[in-house]
Simulated scan of single mutants.
Amino acid sequence: MIEAKNITKKFKQQAAVDNISFNIKEGENFVLLGTSGCGKTTTLKMLNRLIEPTTGSIYINQKNIKEQNAETLRRSIGYVLQNTGLFPHYTVAENIAVVPNLFKWDKEKIQLRVEALMHKLHLAKEYYNAYPNELSGGQQQRVGLARALAADAAILLMDEPFGALDPITRTKVRTDFINLEEFKKKTIVLVTHDVQEAFELADRICLMDKGKIIQTGTPAELLFKPADNFVKTFFDEQRLQLEYKSVTLQMLWPFLEDNNATSPSLKEVPSQSNVWRVLEYLNTDNKDGIRAKDNGAVKQINYASLLHAFNQYKKYN
């Protein structure tokens, strides 16, 4: 859906982004991650022409964005900023409705869309006519997310969308966003410096340093098959937790014990669940284990069998 070919961006002869190429599939969550000043935000802003590349080309649905009207292009792409970028003199409803109004939707359609998004993002009805300065930081960020989703664009660009929030609020807003049906249908490009956030949200991660792409791959590929020492050491501080979050039961399936005596009374979890989530289940109310199903096969899993399978997976990957 998005293709960048040999794009470079120079500021005063200094390359902020240095001859990078990548492809993003339709419906994929693609995360730009890296050191401060590595070029990830510049890369994101080139996708909707907020910044023009010095050289190289970007295609969306096989159409060169340089050949499209920049304003029209931006209206067709959702965009979420870290500081929300809300208009202070607009109400919550007016902020959310900005792009639908530009598209000249009828008033009733706009009102229904605004109310639906406010409900989905847990913004109470009484905030409909409130102004941004009357909201908390978390509520403002929810309005910013609603505005980016309002016109139902197929692509959503997100620049450190949760970075300005405190850790508890950030986790809650992010979780609510992930659970939105709209989130699951869109092609999303996310910039973050938060490694845990990247691993929670990404289908693939593009790890950058000094304007270059060092490695692109799934979270598990970056952990278990690092391209070089930079990639390996980048994740060392949080490695075990990241490994638990990047490996799913489905990936462990060949290493899990075969057992036919599974109890139907045990909690059943999807085989797409990661090890971290399963450990949370086992450490709460599921001391006897849980059951998982994959392609019709059912296995009973307890703490010991899960960690044994995880260690076997690591041994062979």
Results as ranks from 00 to 15, higher is better:
residue 309 A to W: 02
residue 303 Y to S: 10
residue 66 K to Q: 14
residue 201 L to G: 13
residue 44 L to S: 07
residue 245 K to V: 01
residue 122 H to C: 04
residue 55 T to N: 14
residue 272 Q to T: 15
residue 146 A to T: 04
residue 207 L to T: 00
residue 281 Y to A: 04
residue 35 T to C: 11
residue 83 N to V: 03
residue 47 L to K: 06
residue 270 P to N: 09
residue 203 D to R: 10
residue 184 K to T: 10
residue 254 P to M: 03
residue 233 T to M: 06
residue 218 T to C: 05
residue 7 I to H: 06
residue 269 V to Y: 06
residue 16 A to Y: 07
residue 61 N to R: 11
residue 236 D to V: 01
residue 208 M to D: 08
residue 203 D to M: 00
residue 282 L to G: 02
residue 257 E to R: 11
residue 232 K to L: 10
residue 61 N to G: 13
residue 148 A to I: 07
residue 227 A to N: 15
residue 179 N to F: 06
residue 218 T to Y: 00
residue 63 K to I: 15
residue 178 I to H: 06
residue 297 A to W: 00
residue 93 A to Y: 00
residue 223 L to I: 06
residue 284 T to S: 12
residue 308 H to A: 10
residue 103 F to N: 15
residue 283 N to E: 11
residue 115 E to F: 00
residue 229 N to H: 10
residue 160 E to A: 11
residue 312 Q to W: 00
residue 300 Q to I: 01
residue 228 D to Q: 14
residue 72 T to P: 00
residue 165 L to E: 04
residue 259 N to H: 09
residue 171 T to M: 10
residue 142 R to V: 07
residue 101 N to K: 15
residue 223 L to R: 06
residue 13 Q to W: 06
residue 218 T to K: 02
residue 314 K to I: 11
residue 110 I to D: 09
residue 91 T to V: 07
residue 204 R to P: 01
residue 202 A to L: 08
residue 246 S to A: 14
residue 24 I to R: 04
residue 285 D to C: 12
residue 65 I to Q: 11
residue 237 E to T: 03
residue 174 R to A: 05
residue 1 M to W: 03
residue 144 G to H: 02
residue 297 A to S: 09
residue 266 L to D: 08
residue 168 I to R: 08
residue 198 A to Q: 02
residue 165 L to H: 07
residue 97 A to P: 05
residue 290 I to A: 09
residue 264 P to R: 11
residue 301 I to C: 04
residue 277 R to E: 15
residue 99 V to H: 00
residue 313 Y to W: 15
residue 58 I to N: 01
residue 31 V to N: 08
residue 182 E to T: 02
residue 258 D to L: 04
residue 24 I to P: 06
residue 265 S to A: 14
residue 311 N to Y: 03
residue 231 V to S: 14
residue 270 P to V: 04
residue 309 A to G: 12
residue 200 E to C: 01
residue 92 V to I: 06
residue 254 P to Q: 04
residue 263 S to W: 04
residue 243 E to Q: 15
residue 227 A to F: 03
residue 69 N to T: 10
residue 193 H to A: 05
residue 148 A to V: 02
residue 302 N to E: 05
residue 5 K to M: 08
residue 82 Q to N: 11
residue 214 I to Q: 12
residue 295 N to M: 11
residue 150 A to N: 06
residue 263 S to R: 14
residue 119 H to R: 15
residue 137 G to T: 08
residue 2 I to W: 05
residue 9 K to G: 05
residue 105 W to E: 15
residue 49 R to A: 08
residue 62 Q to L: 07
residue 31 V to T: 06
residue 285 D to A: 13
residue 280 E to K: 14
residue 31 V to I: 08
residue 144 G to Q: 09
residue 139 Q to Y: 07
residue 219 P to D: 01
residue 177 F to S: 09
residue 208 M to T: 00
residue 198 A to H: 10
residue 296 G to D: 04
residue 41 T to S: 15
residue 200 E to D: 13
residue 38 C to R: 04
